[in-house]
Design a protein around this nucleic acid. Structure first.
Lengths: 213, 213
DNA sequence: GGTTATTGTGAATATGGATTCATATTATGA
DNA sequence: TCATAATATGAATCCATATTCACAATAACC
């Protein structure tokens, strides 16, 4: 048996199979939603037998939850980092908004999974509920911190940062969701710019004076 | 048999029964979502036998669809009228935003039904899809017309009216949905005011000059 | 009261799909 | 090559629930 260092070929293969199942499931869930995809379907798509799925995941719901967590975390890792650093808060927000384009492009499928299920009401389970709230809290908190900092520096108008943060993320989510439905039709970058315009002419203090902190 | 004028008692009773079924179903669907409510449950709640439901509605999906249409239309009738008239566009938008409080209060249940299902992905059926788009189009079109008018009059900054409209409705939907989940915790009127602040400082031309059309 | 039409009933049926498990296949190590 | 363990298989099981339908209750009309 291999040491703990190097995963044996067998272990790697197992992981690989696991990934293949997850990947097939992701495609299907994102396209049709939890309730409209059967384990049969997933198995067929992943080129396994039905029973095999249960060697990897105790239930359909667990399989789904694992996907949800993975995709949500990956998404956040793509979006949240631009809010770090000590840059100008306007730049951060602008970057944040624009980063949703890459997000939508690179993770269209994962995104659909996350947004569609997290907004709707298809799943029971306190696990999902909890995860959803955790994600929401993470985004809102980072975003509102940035906005609050901007307000302190006099870059932004004095507006409730939490409400502003929620507004912004609601808008971005809805925009991205529409864009994910038919990417050809929607010009996401252009729309993101327009959203930025809407919010910035609201948030940015129009008289050019800065107090600076 | 009664004339076409006066619905007979029998007819009225039948309508009444129908309403009772619809009402029970609304409560349940709004609370648990389409897939997590059984016809048994609805029948029990409405104090009928399972089979009786099928004397009124050909299928579970039809029952649901009927509710969706009814509640959506009622909601729109509550919200859209404030956008009519020749008032000041700022007032109209302000009223529009504030009218969501009444909406949330008076139609909390219907609202949950509509928002939860329309955002998620629980239902198949092109009928539902179509209705959803129709509703969305109605709201966006009225709203963006008002914004465009405001822009022409110099009341608002020159921002893409359609995008602005979509932003606003996305924000209001999300706010209302959260408020519907636990009405005690969320101070909806206060939040609506804050949303108004966010949007208005963005939309309202901060230099006080009006061009007027 | 008896006859017929309408409406309600709920057990029985049908279906879809998640989960299980006895078996087959494949890998591992001697 | 054989014995054993690990995986994979997919038909069979089980369950939930939408839908049906033969029958019962009720109302309408004579």
């Amino acid at each position: 048996m291999a040491s703990a260092m190097e995963p044996s070929r067998k272990e790697r293969e197992r992981l690989q199979h696991r990934q293949e199942i997850l990947s097939a499931a992701l495609q299907l869930f994102a396209e049709k939603g939890f309730h409209n995809v059967s384990m049969q379907e997933i198995a067929t798509a992943a080129q396994f037998a039905t029973g095999t799925l249960y060697n990897f995941f105790p239930s359909k719901e667990d399989l789904f939850f694992e996907l949800l967590v993975a995709t949500a975390d990956a998404g956040l890792d793509l979006i949240l980092p631009v809010l770090e650093g000590t840059d100008d808060e306007r730049d951060k927000l602008s970057l944040f908004i624009r980063s949703h384009e890459r997000f939508a492009r690179e993770q269209a499928v994962a995104l659909r999974l996350y947004l569609l299920e997290s907004r709707g009401w298809c799943l029971p389970g306190p696990k999902v509920e909890a995860k959803k709230k955790e994600i929401d809290a993470r985004v809102t908190s980072r975003l509102s911190n940035v906005i609050a900092a901007g307000i302190r520096k006099g870059l932004f108008n004095d507006i409730d940062p939490v409400v502003a943060a929620k507004c912004l993320s609601a808008v971005l989510e809805s925009l991205i969701l529409v864009a994910a439905e038919d990417p050809q039709v929607v010009d996401l970058p252009a729309n993101l710019e327009k959203v930025e315009a809407v919010f910035f002419r609201g948030l940015v203090n129009s008289s050019g004076d800065k107090r600076d902190a």
